[in-house]
C-alpha cells in the first residue's frame, strides 16, 4: 500500500490544529460537556445568589428598619461572587488539562484533573483578571492612540491642505480612514489576545501556582509565532460564529426595541426586554457548547508551541 509522508516536520499546520480540536471535542463530548455544565452552573449561581441576597436584604431592612445590615450582606455577596468566578475559571482550565493530557497520551479523568487544579483555584481567578485587565488596557490605549491619529489626519487634510469637507473624495477618504483605523485596532487586539491565549495552560499543566509566571510563559511561547496563533483564533472564531451568533441576534433586536422608543408603546419595550433576556439565555447556552472547543484549541496550541519551541517530542 502506498503511503505518503504527511508528517515530516511533526508540528501541526493551522488547519490541523482546528481539525484536531473538533476531533478531540467530538470524541470526548460527554466528559468535556459535563465540566462545561459545571462551569456554567457557577455562573448561574451568581445570578441566584443576587436574587436571594436582595430578598434577604429586603426582609431584614423591613424588620429592623435600618440599612446598616445591608453592608455585611453586600460584602458576603461579593465574596460569593468571587468564589463562583474562581470556580468557573478553574473548571474551564480543567477542560484544557483534560485535552492536553489526551494529546500527550496520558489521559486523565475529570475527577483527577479537578483534584489537581482545585488548590490553584484562586490563581485561576487572578489569572483571568490579569489577562482581562491587560487586554482592557491595550484596547483603551490603542483606541485613544488611533483616534488621535485619525483626528490629526483629518485636521491636516482640511485645515493644512485646505480641502473642502464637501468634496465627495474627502468624505470617502475619511470613511476609509476610519474603517482602516478600526481594522488596525482589531488586529492589535487579536495580536495581544494571541500573546495571552494559552495563559491558562502553564498554570493547569506545569508545576506552578503563579498566575504571573503562567502569563509570561504564554507570552514567551507565542511571541515568535504570533501570526499563526492569530490565524488559528480567527478560523476558530469563524467556525463557532454560527453558534455564538444565535444569542446575539435577539439581544441586538431587543436592545434596539427597548432603547429606541419610537412610539412610547410599553408593550414594544416589554417585548424588547424579553428579547434581551432570551438573547442572554441563548448566549449562555451557546457558551456551554462552544467553550470546551476553545479550551481544546488552547491545549493543542500549547502542546504544539511547546514542541516547536522546546522540542519535547524530539526523542529517539
Amino acid at each position: 500500500m502506498a503511503k505518503n509522508n504527511y508528517d515530516p516536520v511533526g508540528t501541526l499546520s493551522i488547519g490541523n490544529v482546528i481539525t484536531t480540536g473538533t476531533t478531540l471535542y467530538k470524541s470526548n463530548f460527554k466528559r468535556y460537556f459535563q465540566v462545561s455544565l459545571r462551569a456554567t452552573g457557577w455562573l448561574i449561581a451568581i445570578g441566584f445568589s443576587a436574587v436571594i441576597g436582595i430578598l434577604i436584604g429586603g426582609v431584614l431592612s423591613g424588620v429592623t428598619k435600618s440599612w446598616l445590615l445591608t453592608i455585611p450582606l453586600g460584602l458576603g455577596w461579593i465574596a460569593i461572587v468571587l468564589y463562583c468566578l474562581a470556580k468557573y475559571a478553574t473548571n474551564r482550565a480543567v477542560i484544557c488539562r483534560l485535552a492536553y493530557q489526551e494529546i500527550i497520551d496520558a489521559p486523565e479523568s475529570a475527577e483527577v484533573a479537578t483534584r489537581q487544579l482545585t488548590p490553584r483555584t484562586w490563581s485561576f481567578l487572578r489569572l483571568s483578571w490579569l489577562v482581562g485587565f491587560y487586554l482592557c488596557l491595550v484596547a483603551t490605549i490603542s483606541y485613544i492612540g488611533l483616534g488621535i491619529l485619525v483626528v490629526m489626519a483629518i485636521g491636516v487634510a482640511i485645515y493644512g491642505l485646505n480641502l473642502s469637507i464637501e468634496n465627495p473624495f474627502i468624505i470617502v477618504g475619511i470613511a476609509l480612514l476610519i474603517i482602516g483605523a478600526f481594522l488596525v485596532w482589531l488586529v492589535i487586539l487579536i495580536r495581544y489576545y494571541a500573546y495571552w491565549f494559552i495563559a491558562e495552560l502553564p498554570l493547569a499543566i506545569e508545576q506552578t501556582t503563579s498566575a504571573n509566571f503562567s502569563i509570561s510563559r504564554s507570552n514567551k511561547l507565542s511571541r515568535t509565532v504570533t501570526s499563526r496563533v492569530v490565524l488559528i483564533i480567527t478560523i476558530a472564531f469563524l467556525m463557532t460564529l454560527p453558534i455564538s451568533a444565535v444569542g446575539s441576534v435577539p439581544s441586538f433586536i431587543g436592545q434596539i426595541m427597548s432603547s429606541v422608543n419610537i412610539s412610547g408603546d410599553p408593550s414594544t419595550q416589554a417585548i424588547g426586554k424579553s428579547l434581551v433576556s432570551l438573547g442572554l439565555l441563548l448566549n449562555l447556552l451557546s457558551e456551554l457548547f462552544v467553550m470546551p472547543f476553545w479550551q481544546a484549541i488552547k491545549a493543542i496550541v500549547y502542546a504544539d508551541l511547546r514542541n516547536r519551541r522546546e522540542g519535547g517530542d524530539l526523542i529517539i
Binding site: 500500500m1 502506498a2 503511503k3 505518503n4 504527511y6 499546520s13 493551522i14 488547519g15 490541523n16 490544529v17 482546528i18 481539525t19 484536531t20 480540536g21 473538533t22 490565524l231 480567527t234 478560523i235 469563524l238 467556525m239
Partner: peptide, 19 residues
C-alpha cells in the same frame, strides 16, 4: 486496483481554504 491511503483535509483546513 492500487490501494492508496490519504489523510482527509479536515474541517480546519477546509474553513481556512474557503476563507
Amino acid at each position: 486496483s492500487v490501494e492508496l491511503e490519504f489523510v482527509l483535509a479536515g474541517l480546519g483546513n477546509r474553513i481556512y481554504a474557503l476563507s
